[in-house]
Design a protein around this nucleic acid. Structure first.
Lengths: 193, 193
DNA sequence: CGAAATATGGAGGCTGCCTCCATATTCGGT
DNA sequence: ACCGAATATGGAGGCAGCCTCCATATTTCG
């Protein structure tokens, strides 16, 4: 994978680069273990850095989050390309949605900022988010033209649906079901044709 | 509607009842306008009451929320009964899901605590939440037996799906779609039969 | 009316967010 | 190898929200 550790970052002083990397490294751990709500102060502390330093490098939680997700996003885009290679349009769409789900599961609670991102163009997640919607639209269009996707469905519907399912999917056990079952419902509906 | 203002509350001193009502009243306004994350301190202040008093009456945000939702829950249960009266099992299920959606839209962000409720049996929302799942199961079973609901779907699937759609539905506009379209996708899937 | 029971509110401890700036570190030119 | 300019640091401090505790106030009832 690409080197998220931005060790290759020009125009940054050596100490700055070092600190940035340490923050990023610690942040990934914390986001992974405590979800996207992890305390930024605690991350700074664990990285052996003052809060000011953290905020200098990453002005907002979203910025830090986006940086932490860079690798995963690259991976996701790679899987988008793989999906594009698949001949069967339906299978391709499925592959993409599966990739999207995996991505959204990177950190607990990730669906929320992604959902919010599109509204605020300021967010560092926003452009990537728009990109994800457009990929969804692309593969959906193909599945509508050459596969079995419904014509009435839009990219927004599909993306939002995927977000909703991802958001909910942490609790599938408590509700006596499984991720797969839930996804199947979303794919085929709860009603017969 | 039933009197959520618990003015009829035995064993409470007159001033206590008065304060409880004021808190509840203000809380409903604040939750409605700012979502379920509204500041409890601010609610207390607006109710002309100290924070301690608020916490004495409602030990947690969830407790306050649950109290604020009492009326809406009664309404929801009434609509469940209406749904049960409907002869067509599919239509009945639809009516119930529509009622559920309306309920979940009472306050911005309500889906989150409802989703969480089932895990923590301590939550004041938990029992009501279980009840909602069981109603969903009941109407789903009927639609499976006498209507066109898929046999493979479970009550948990349906409830979680509804939660996910409700959670996401605030942003439908930003994603260039509509609540109805999204719900249709959930009902029928994005794939053709 | 007064004592016992009950309720109050606000001070205060805690955590998290974020900003600012005196001080420390690095860098590039000599 | 050194020094001044440019850059980065960290931690103090201001703010807001959560929640608890208890000296004081209000109500109730005999």
């Amino acid at each position: 994978m690409t080197n998220v550790a931005a060790s290759d970052r020009p125009g940054l002083r050596a100490d700055a680069r070092r600190n940035r990397d340490r923050i990023l490294h610690v942040a990934m751990q914390h986001f992974a273990s405590r979800g996207i709500g992890a305390s930024l102060e605690e991350i700074a502390r664990a990285a052996g850095v003052g809060p000011g330093t953290l905020y200098r490098h990453f002005p907002s939680r979203e910025a830090l989050l986006a940086a932490c997700l860079e690798d995963r996003q690259a991976e996701l885009l790679a899987r988008a390309d793989e999906a594009r290679q698949i001949a069967d349009a339906d299978v391709a769409l499925d592959a993409w949605l599966a990739a999207l789900r995996d991505y959204l599961r990177t950190f607990n609670g990730l669906p929320a900022p992604v959902l919010a991102a599109i509204e605020e163009q300021a967010s560092p997640l926003a452009t990537s988010c728009q990109h994800l919607v457009s990929i969804t639209g692309e593969l959906l269009a193909r599945a509508q033209a050459h596969g079995h996707a419904r014509r009435s469905v839009t990219a927004g519907d599909l993306f939002l649906g995927a977000l909703g399912m991802a958001w909910v999917s942490d609790r599938v056990d408590a509700y006596g079901t499984t991720r797969d079952a839930l996804e199947a419902v979303f794919a085929h509906g709860y009603l017969d044709a």
